[in-house]
Design a protein around this nucleic acid. Structure first.
Lengths: 358, 358
DNA sequence: GTGAAAGCGCTAACAT
DNA sequence: ATGTTAGCGCTTTCAC
């Protein structure tokens, strides 16, 4: 087996440095008791041999791999790409490795879990994708914490961080109402995804509170993708049996962008004059000149921090946090796809333009 | 150390199944000599204990981790996100794990290499980012193959797969010339990146062959990003000392998209009537209705296959392939940002519209 | 086909 | 502060 490899081990280094092998181990373990002088001798020998400690071997004894698994669903939604990036950057800063698994839309992450169980990962982050409660307990039994990012699994004791999606949906509803909208359409994502369902629920609830009739709120499936949203918008707006809604809520920015393009460049409508539009997420793509999308910002960096803190990777002995549900407020960002009503012109956050998340 | 974990080992399974521990190992090793009956007994016991073989331990003996490292530069360029996705999907199909490292723009990947060396990865794929030849040999010495994706390192013996960027640049030049352009601008990426430099070179060369004067080809730095390209375009076109070029080549699609938006929505120009534009990559985003970008398609799936074949992960004993440079032809995709000249109306690939890579 | 035993390269008591 | 020793959970000869 194994390609002829000639890798120096701690024994080789020990021999060259004239110390014991444990001294080598200590030299590479911050905080272990070793004389600075010996340390230098070891480091010097290690340098000569281009020695790199074998993490695999160390994982075997410590039972900590320093690897965090990241399970990703939809990479077609830029929001999750930015999420991946944020996690990756943060974890790298901490000197941890990131193992990724991509899961097809609609598929569950169970198989991915089985794989990462084999690698003794220190924690798992799950975005998109479903997860059976059976897998959750399998991880927990083995001491592997899981944190759900922007979703939760009813009946599971897995912890999670999410944007307060329902409240965010309400914010959009309020913005539309303030701008005078009376009839509404929603472009939804996967109905099984709590993210989509919660945004829809908050949105509808708020509308009903204002006396909007259910029949004035229509809902179409947009598959969480640009293309599906584009097509659904065309179908919806060309349906002769329907009158044109005043406002369209894309459950996420990428769908709102698809809708916007369909409205303007296929249907020849003006936004916001003929029809207002809003999204959710505040992806950088939605801030571009042609879109200037009014949306709800998910504080992605904050969410990432929270998620990692729930994992508490530095305190492996602390029991796993179960059943935590940490909702984080989103913020309405006014741009150009809803006319800003006078009442909102003051005092802050207006035309939240292009500045990025603080 | 180690959170109180109670994970079944092969010994537990062996005890329950009433066989030796080696039998358990064999039961999980395809192709090893074990009676079907024993295998079943073992599998049954394993199921009862929810046993998952410990890959860390097995890596230690076999010296193969079944992990492939993927080093990513710019995640703001969707092309690399699609690349990541393609690699991840393919590798997962093969039952391998993907360890990712993100490297900041302009930074080199040396530190990432040091980390992945510690994990005994079976292979390394490098996209974007620079890599010192020292690190290359460090990997090679240890029997870890590296493949460069869409870049090469002069003076290094690392193998790579890339789109034939120079030829692609020529294709764009030809398209512009055929459409009657006489003066040109280029939006370039990082000048140190071979990808950008090669496209520029091919483009310019072809133009010069047709008698275009050097002074009719201007070049501005677009930083490989949408925003920088947008701004650079505005600056360029509002420069009173310059006359407007007939054609603008964005060295990659995301920059061409930024340029397109600047031209249309900031400068009020029509594309292709006032100015033609082309990109490079053929990312799905450039196929969207508002863009319909004429571009050169990089056959990403084919490139991924080639890259993996150079790694020859299944034949670890074969010596590492060095110095391979596998250029793969791109294909010109006509859409709407260059008027299609009559000579090109036939026979194929025209208005290559929205179909994706075969 | 199966079991016993010797590592893989490291960490972590335990002595000194 | 340093060396000695016993594993971590597996794979792989080597006998039988």
């Amino acid at each position: 087996m194994a390609r002829p490899t000639n890798r120096a081990t701690s024994f080789d280094v020990a021999a060259l440095a004239g110390v014991s092998q444990s001294a080598v181990s200590r030299a590479f373990t911050p905080g272990s008791s070793i004389a600075e002088e010996t340390r230098q001798k070891v480091l010097e020998a290690a340098r000569k041999l281009a020695y790199v400690p074998n993490s695999i071997a160390s994982s075997l004894t410590t039972k900590r791999s320093n690897i965090v698994a990241l399970i990703l669903g939809d990479m077609n939604n830029p929001f999750y790409v930015h999420t991946l990036h944020a996690f990756s950057r943060r974890l790298q800063e901490q000197g941890r490795q990131v193992l990724i698994f991509t899961v097809d839309r609609g598929a569950d992450a169970d198989e991915a879990i089985l794989h990462l169980l084999a690698y003794q990962v220190d924690g798992v982050i799950l975005t998109a994708a479903q997860l059976s409660t059976r897998m959750t307990s399998l991880c927990h039994e083995r001491g592997i914490p899981i944190v759900l990012f922007n979703r939760y699994i009813p009946g599971s004791d897995a912890s999670g961080v999410r944007c307060d999606n329902a409240a965010g949906g309400r914010l959009i509803a309020e913005a539309f109402l303030a701008a005078g909208a009376k009839s509404f359409a929603m472009l939804t994502g996967d109905p099984k995804a709590t993210t989509s369902a919660d945004r829809v629920r908050g949105f509808v609830e708020r509308l009903l509170e204002d006396g909007i009739k259910r029949s004035d709120i229509i809902s179409v499936e947009g598959n969480s993708s640009y293309d599906a949203a584009f097509n659904a918008t065309v179908t919806l707006l060309t349906d002769k049996n329907r009158s044109r809604p005043d406002a369209l809520f894309g459950i996420n920015d990428i769908m709102a962008m698809g809708a916007l393009d369909a409205l303007r460049y296929r249907l020849g409508l003006r936004v916001p004059e003929d029809l207002m539009v809003a999204g959710f997420d505040d992806i950088p793509e939605g801030r571009r000149t042609p879109y200037q999308l009014t949306t709800v910002r998910q504080p992605i960096n904050q969410m990432v921090e929270e998620a990692l803190s729930i994992l508490h990777l530095d305190e492996p002995n602390r029991p796993i946090e179960r059943g935590i549900d940490r909702p984080i407020s989103g913020k309405l960002i006014w741009r150009n796809t809803i006319p800003v009503p006078p009442a909102y012109r003051w005092p802050d956050g207006l035309k939240g333009g292009s500045e990025s998340e603080p």
